[in-house]
Design a protein around this nucleic acid. Sequence first.
DNA 1: GATGAATGAGCTTTCATTCAT
DNA 2: GATGAATGAAAGCTCATTCAT
Lengths: 195, 195, 195, 195
Amino acid sequence: MRTADKHSKIIDAAIKVFSRKGFYNARISDIAKEAQVADGTIYLYFNNKYDILISLFEEEIGKIILEVKLLIEQENDPRQMLRLFALHHLKLMEEKRELAEVLQMELRQCNKFMREYRNTKFIEYVDIISAIVKKGKEMGMFRESVLPGVFKRAFFGALDETARLWVLSPNHSYTIEEAAAQISAIFLEGILEER
Amino acid sequence: MRTADKHSKIIDAAIKVFSRKGFYNARISDIAKEAQVADGTIYLYFNNKYDILISLFEEEIGKIILEVKLLIEQENDPRQMLRLFALHHLKLMEEKRELAEVLQMELRQCNKFMREYRNTKFIEYVDIISAIVKKGKEMGMFRESVLPGVFKRAFFGALDETARLWVLSPNHSYTIEEAAAQISAIFLEGILEER
Amino acid sequence: MRTADKHSKIIDAAIKVFSRKGFYNARISDIAKEAQVADGTIYLYFNNKYDILISLFEEEIGKIILEVKLLIEQENDPRQMLRLFALHHLKLMEEKRELAEVLQMELRQCNKFMREYRNTKFIEYVDIISAIVKKGKEMGMFRESVLPGVFKRAFFGALDETARLWVLSPNHSYTIEEAAAQISAIFLEGILEER
Amino acid sequence: MRTADKHSKIIDAAIKVFSRKGFYNARISDIAKEAQVADGTIYLYFNNKYDILISLFEEEIGKIILEVKLLIEQENDPRQMLRLFALHHLKLMEEKRELAEVLQMELRQCNKFMREYRNTKFIEYVDIISAIVKKGKEMGMFRESVLPGVFKRAFFGALDETARLWVLSPNHSYTIEEAAAQISAIFLEGILEER
DNA sequence: GATGAATGAGCTTTCATTCAT
DNA sequence: GATGAATGAAAGCTCATTCAT
């Protein structure tokens, strides 16, 4: 088997196992069994358990960033870009439910004891949002008063929390598309009744 | 020392220690030392390590809910209520930074291996938001189309993510009050330039 | 059980186990079983496996130094002192065969990867020999040309190697007393036939 | 590369690595890297890790025995033979410091868990000393009372311990030749002042 | 013969929890 | 109620050895 295969087999297995048990409760042997390799093999590809998590994060976020950027590029209207971002984010979290759980976990808990790890990939992802806002402001489409740095966090947080609960609860009273549309609408137009 | 004192001394110690090291890296003996009690004493008040976290969560969220409800009650305007909620949430996270970190951590990571734990306190807290929205809709102040269940998650997520990064990064280009005002404004009025 | 008991029970167990299997092949659980304590208990008294070896070494050599100094003190004749030292050393190695094996092991192998550990206790022990030589020289009883620093090593080495093989081989053609007497005689008078 | 070359390349590498890290801390991959062969290649020439040590020992001691015997043969005076032996031993340990460390290590620690290994090569080496003593006794040059079996151990031990410390400490107050001369002198003439 | 990726048994150490005092 | 010494299960990681190429 080629090296590339083993690496991604382990990453895939780790996503499954971390998502199922959480990082701390996941045992290396669980990942090894899931990846159908020996425990020791994992250490040929990763330095330690935490390194698996970091690698997983960087690689998977990396793929997502590429996808989203490609998607957004095809649009010119910043409003549409935000709508696309929201939809893509939520759909992704639904489609890759296990990955979603792991990413969310890492964003919180593991920064905890590894504060030194500058999460550049995540920042890059969220900065896609602020870039859209800046563009919208330049085009005179978004208010001058909107702070892109605040907006990006609020927007990402709204999507992320929505995805989190979507993933946790088994049945939903609305579709993912409806949720995405609703959230984009709120951020674009607010909730105030037109006067 | 009265029993109630020991209980809350342990909770306070746990907040400090969990916030500093994370739940999994925190040792019972760390908490015991911080609380100035013996390791064994902790087991007179809590069933196990996880029980400390759950208790901590329920009690502290309980206090916050009381506070917020009291604050909100004094207002009649749903717009103002949302602004107050946002400000209160962010200020709280800033003032009780250690507690904030623990709550955020638990909301993600620990649900993980304890999915059976129905987080009713958290739901109660977030439902304050949807109640405001419902009231606003009834008063004809918020759009009919706004789904309170979607809005509450989006609004809470926006605040939570903002708080998370606020707590992590050492210096900020705006105040907590500005961030709260901006987020409330976005959710109320959107970001679109008036036509 | 009192703390002092556990500490020395573990040391005694470690002597047995190290002597039987060698330091590297000894498992902590072997020592724990021999000492009739739990594995974890060992870590209440020692930092790690190597710390057991060092502690063992320092404590046991310490006892031996006290004994020998006491014994030597009662003599005035440096020749007799050397004879006593030799006899005491060999008898000790025979009586405490397991300890002997461990001490010999550590003197070689473990200096290896712990060259930074300045083996002061061992130096103190061997310096008893050079002190005797110096005294003998002052009294005009030993040749001026004898270098105490060379002599102490040669004398200790002779005893140590004799003890090593004594301990290894099951049957002997002479007693430990004869060996001690012979070695002392060689070092004092040489092996040359009187002319 | 011829087979013989690989074999000795591995032995040479093992001497370096064992000397640097000790037998137990040396990894097969360290030796392989040092010998510039693959890990697996080592198992074409040796059965296992311990086999490398044994082979190394036998081969190197074998060479030394040949050398010493050749050297000694050219002498007729047993006193001179002992002096030569001492000088040769110490010089060897100084010249081949890495080998010296490995040999000393094995004499203690590793016999430990492999007591079944009858160290015939080592016995052969030490028996050179007892042969000299026997010859000296036959020639009436050494005392009748000297036991060759005791003497050989004492003499070897004296040299070995001297070499051990010589190798360990970085600076010396006398030359290797002086040490050898002094030790020979002690064993031949003792340390007592002539009456 | 040579390689080195893969294996998996094995061991030190940690730490939540217990319980005799 | 309070203590903290003792417990022992559990798991991350290493590395000698194998074997398909």
